[in-house]
Amino acid sequence: MILRVREICDLFNLDVVSGKSNLDREVTGGYCGDLLSDVIANSSAGNVWLTIQGHQNIVAVAALKQISAIIIVNGRSADAETVAKAEEEGISILLSSKSAFEMTCLLGQAGLGK
């Protein structure tokens, strides 16, 4: 099932801190990871990326991999530089208080990846 970023935000009440004009992007699956080399090698275009990393280096990774949106989990936030860079690259960053595991389960229940 394909969801749009906007539907994910609405379903789980996520805060959108950047890329508000790109919420119509389709999400075809997801990837969890906090090691950037792992994410750059193994995530796929159209994934939503769940991570605890909030620093600016996540933006280039998301841009290069055509990630549909980043969800920063565990109640963490995005650095100001991250938000500015994400706006520049058109990357949507969403915030969740849930853990990567909880968020992944919820996305699965919503039908993502099925």
Partner: peptide, 14 residues
């Protein structure tokens, strides 16, 4: 910052 996985050069080689 999520670097230092020791995957950089192996990723490039692969």
């Amino acid at each position: 910052m999520g670097f230092g996985a020791g995957m950089g050069l192996p990723n490039m080689k692969k």
